[in-house]
Amino acid sequence: MATDLIFLKRRIINAIALLLSAAAALLGLACLAWILWTTLSKGIAAFNIALFTQMTPPPGEAGGLANALFGSIVMCLIATAMGTPIGIAAGTFVAEYADRHWVGYTIRFVNDILLSAPSIVLGLFVYTLVVRPMGGFSGFAGALALAFIVIPVVVRTTDDMLKLVPSQMREAALSLGIPQWKVTLQILYRAAAPGIVTGMLLALARISGETAPLLFTALNNQYWSTDLSEPIASAPVVIFQYAMSPFEDWHALAWAGAFIITVFVLALSLFARLVLLRKRVAHD
């Protein structure tokens, strides 16, 4: 009898635990659906072609987000263009030259901390490094702050992807007398290319919604500007400003901007996943 009771108790505990676990997963999915639904329904309601053709308006007037979207695109592209080569090079150094060496461990450690460091801190860093000495907010400073977010993402993926390339490939190439830089550039990069591209796309997805580091580097600009040495508008900062305001039409514009960013980011990260089909390692 007693064993039956113990058995029953264990089964009940098991059932409760599994039920709670399924409930947690359901709750997570519900949050995702709720947030996406809010963004989509409010965003589509405010969506129109003027978003892409008109400038950010003062309160009470109609307008669009053209200058903000343009500023975002320019800064993200510059940040990716600056951060990717440095990230790939540093990732190559860690994986190919300093692997299993204390220098490599240190760089990996520091890089992982940069990867999760609060982005607002990077904004402050660029502020003291660039904005204050140069005497003003600028689009270039904004792009630089974003580049500091790109670098760790690319370093990490490059490192991971190069480690996945079988060492036989390196040995075969080296034994043919090919110098190491050529092995790296023409063989390893080719083998690891999908992974490295994925890292780049994920980095781009991450910076395109970043707000905090832009608040005091690129600042904001109500007008169309292509001058990177001047303050420049960006979609996330404009969304922040408009959403925190008391004006209804600014709210609508903010939702439209949020919709554009969300769709872009989700599409980019899904695409990045498609580029790289995940490899699972068996553990037996």
């Binding site: 709720w34 947030i35 809010t38 963004t39 997805a205 991450r206 395109s208 919604g209 970043e210 707000t211 996330p236 969304i239 922040f240 959403a243 903010a254 939702w255 949020a258 960013i261 969300t262 980011v265 989700l266 990260s269």
Partner: peptide
């Protein structure tokens, strides 16, 4: 992957 500003607005 959703930007944090979207969480904020929501």
């Amino acid at each position: 992957g959703i930007p944090s500003i979207i969480y904020g607005m929501w």
